[in-house]
């Protein structure tokens, strides 16, 4: 985004948010995670390690919170019932823990983006929060500004220790292997998105005309010449692996997509700091919504019998 571009297209940058802002989108990738279905098996985290060349740092560094798990299962214990605890021998509560799969929320108003001194993290026309490894200088400013703590820094060069001799053959060639001094995070499996989009372009499945699409309260200007992808044409690694199908991923700009229907069904919309729900029994919510980060991941609350 050069200065020349900004000056030439000044009127685009002056556009109000209601008219779609200054971004031209091709897609708006979003996710919906049903916590009722999540059993905390960590299969998604393992799939992410395999797909995205994540470094295995070892037990010692993991305890120092230097783990490189882009997808992690957060575990929460509820209020303990003291009467029941005294009767049983277990120190944990009866119905077990609550699980929350946590990956980069791909915020539309990301806190990490404006603080990067070299613009290594920016917003793509896919509505994703990109991280460009070869531009990153490792200031770690973005990680400190992320309220979700979802950015991981390569403090060491893990290449030799993570994938000793024959194991380096399992590395995914569609993705670079990060070296030390570089920040990294979930990309919504950009290599799979790229393959699907390239395939659509090669088959001439292209939307010819620009459009203005309303998603909930937000308005998006969709660019002409964007690829026309079918819903579920490809899956992210975590979604593909989830044994209970808790994770749904898709294009929010496509009104037919499964993820869009889930968001609409749970009365959660983009571009809000507080959801106004007609039906309070709908379980959908977004994490740290009040911070106005506008995340693209919706969680559906877990309901238990008491």
């Amino acid at each position: 985004m050069s200065l020349k571009n900004i000056l030439e297209n000044w009127s685009n940058y002056r556009r109000d948010r209601e008219a779609g802002g200054h971004h031209e989108y091709e897609h708006m990738w979003g996710m919906a995670i049903d916590l009722n279905k999540c059993i905390g098996c960590n299969a998604c985290a393992v799939a992410c390690y395999a797909e995205n060349n994540l470094a295995i740092v070892g037990k010692e560094k993991m305890t120092k919170k230097q783990g490189m798990h882009w997808m992690r299962i957060e575990r929460y214990w509820g209020e303990p019932d003291l009467d029941k605890l005294s009767q049983s021998s277990s120190q944990y509560q009866e119905h077990g823990a609550n699980f929350l799969p946590m990956m980069c929320q791909q915020c539309n108003a990301a806190t990490c983006e404006p603080v990067c001194p070299v613009a290594a993290t920016f917003h793509t026309p896919d509505g994703l929060n990109a991280q460009v490894y070869n531009r990153c200088i490792g200031s770690r400013y973005c990680s400190n500004n992320c309220p979700y703590r979802l950015r991981y820094f390569n403090f060491y060069s893990y290449y030799e220790s993570s994938w000793p001799a024959p194991l380096h053959l399992q590395l995914n060639p569609d993705l670079s292997v990060r070296d030390k001094g570089v920040m990294e995070k979930c990309t919504f499996c950009i290599q799979r998105i790229r393959v699907a989009k390239d395939k659509a372009r090669m088959e001439d499945r292209v939307e010819k005309e620009a459009a203005v699409i309303k998603v909930g309260d937000s308005t998006f200007r969709a660019a002409a010449g964007r690829g026309k992808l079918e819903d579920m044409e490809f899956q992210t690694a975590c979604q593909q692996t989830c044994p209970t199908g808790a994770i749904v991923f898709g294009d929010m700009l496509n009104p037919e997509s499964q993820v869009r229907k889930l968001w609409d069904g749970h009365q959660v919309s983009l571009g809000k700091t507080k959801q106004t729900k007609q039906n309070p029994e709908k379980r959908g919510y977004r994490v740290f919504e009040a911070l106005n980060t506008d995340p693209c991941v919706m969680y559906m609350e877990r309901v238990r019998e008491v």
Binding site: T124, V132, L175
Partner: peptide, 8 residues
């Protein structure tokens, strides 16, 4: 001109 077209 998107960085993620070539770098990922």
């Amino acid at each position: 001109s998107d960085c993620w077209k070539c770098h990922k």
